[in-house]
Design a binder for these strands. Structure first.
Length: 416
RNA sequence: GCGGUCGUGGCGAAGUGGCUAACGCAUCGGUCUGUGGCUCCGACAUUCGCGGGUUCAAUUCCCGUCGAUCGCCCCA
């Protein structure tokens, strides 16, 4: 019986795992400087959390969740995004009672049952942050700057930041009405997708690629922001400008999760086929309360890790490689086997990366093996060496070779 | 969820309704009983994603299925 990995999942092999560690470590380091602390929450949660938190009418909840019943018939769901779980933990552990703004980050797998394509998997990985209990526009800008800083630290070029304000729920419902009024007369001429969007999610009409000309002259959400929302948005922009974060305002930027209010933003880059969004986020002022906590606000972001890696590859950045081997110990003959084994262990205990052969290959082939592992030294233990308690050490890049007593073995390797 | 393309050894890649399924790289062995990145020789797919059908005969044709990939939708 031969098995395949489930559709839309990926094995991360040792060579690629190095790249993943680099991305994760970079994100962690940036978080440390920005003072965001790691939180680890379960990979599955009560289904209701996502229905409530992400929004009943979102695509994610309507058709993309991995939902299952456990043996007690509890409905559980593999997390499709990170914010709901973090906010649930925030409320459940009463972190809202802490005096300072809670700045949290997470990193890990998410699950959505979608049609896979480049940059879109059913199990994918996100890094994200959430800043809870502050409505200060400065923290919106800080979050946007944090994500941008991670892309910078990774060396990604041409990352664009687009921002928008989706206002308060009240602003939005007034705006949706205005949009329907605007599109109603031309609806019959528009594409089927748009016709279904009209009722379900009028703001998405602006996103349509088919009927771009129909959108000309459509009202902008920005005209419907109340004074406070507008001031907040202007303030976020002022803070971004102060940091020289390049951004453009895109009034038709909408995000797919219901909990967003005020600031919405996306990071975009070219290089993954049709996909350009590599990260995004926004403010979610009603979410803490919706999940059973006090009336507190929050703002956060999520970055797609495989998308960041795809962009790095598309831009041909120099990616980290696996560590090189310090010394390959070649034992010749049966008498050397045990001594080889012992010495490999001694070298390792001394902090040296040491390896040997376990396939009884011939001496010459061991050089190839050593080369494949990028070994710096080859150590040779044959009958002669054993008799005299010495080892022949060959520096592979130059071919220089010397024979030293066992007492000098480790120090010679460490010398270069 | 809808539409297009694709699926041959570890990797890359020919090919055909029918004798032993090219070739390249990689790997292992010999050439060279203890010194690599060269040469030459040899080994390496009871089998062409899986299941079914057509046929005297299918890896090659048809259907289904699984998977990959591209686009739409949506998103990270």
């Amino acid at each position: 019986m031969k098995f395949q990995k489930p559709r839309g999942t990926h094995d991360i092999l040792p060579q690629e795992a190095v790249v993943w560690r680099w991305v994760e470590q970079t994100a962690r380091e940036v978080c440390d400087r920005f003072r965001y602390r790691e939180i680890r929450t379960p990979i599955f949660e009560s289904t209701g959390l996502f229905e409530r938190g992400v929004g009943e009418t979102t695509d994610i909840v309507e058709k993309e969740m991995y939902t299952f019943a456990d043996k007690s018939e509890r409905s559980l769901t593999l997390r499709p995004e990170g914010t709901a779980g973090v906010v649930r933990a925030y409320v459940e552990n009463k972190l809202y009672a802490e005096p300072d703004v809670q700045k949290l980050f997470y990193i890990g797998p998410m699950f959505r049952n979608e049609r896979p394509m480049a940059g879109r998997n059913r199990q994918f990985h996100q890094f994200g942050v959430e800043a809870l209990n502050s409505s200060d526009p400065a923290i919106d800008a800080e979050v946007i700057a944090l994500g941008f800083s991670i892309y910078e630290a990774l060396g990604l070029r041409n990352v664009r930041v687009e921002i928008n304000s989706v206002g308060t729920p009240e602003c939005r419902s007034a705006y949706r009405q205005a949009l329907r009024d605007f599109f109603a007369p031309k609806l019959a001429l528009m594409c089927p997708d748009c016709q279904s969007r009209f009722d379900r999610n009028a703001m998405r009409l602006l996103d349509c690629k088919v009927d771009t000309q129909a959108c000309e002259g459509a009202p902008s959400i920005l005209e419907f922001l109340d004074e406070a929302a507008n001031e907040h948005f202007q303030n976020v922009q002022a803070h971004l400008k102060a940091l020289d974060i390049p951004f453009v305002v895109n009034p038709s930027l909408v995000r797919g999760l219901d909990y967003y209010t005020h600031t919405a933003f996306e990071y975009m880059a070219e290089g993954i086929g049709a996909i350009t969004t590599i990260g995004g986020g926004g403010r979610f002022n009603g979410l803490v309360e919706a999940v059973g906590g006090p009336e507190q606000s929050g703002v956060g972001l999520g970055l797609g890790l495989e998308r960041a890696i795809l962009i790095a590859q598309a831009q041909q950045l120099e990616l980290p490689k696996e560590t090189a081997l310090d010394v390959f110990v070649a034992g010749l003959g049966e008498a050397a086997e045990l001594v080889t084994f012992e010495w490999v262990h001694k070298l390792r205990k001394a902090g040296i990366r040491a390896e040997r052969d376990y396939q009884s290959r011939k001496f010459k082939t061991l050089f190839k093996a050593a080369e494949r592992q990028n070994a710096r030294w080859m150590a040779i233990l044959g009958d002669d060496e054993l008799a005299q308690q010495v080892v022949t050490l060959k520096y592979l890049s130059t071919g220089e070779q010397q024979t030293v007593p066992w007492t000098e073995w480790i120090s010679t390797i460490q010398s270069k």
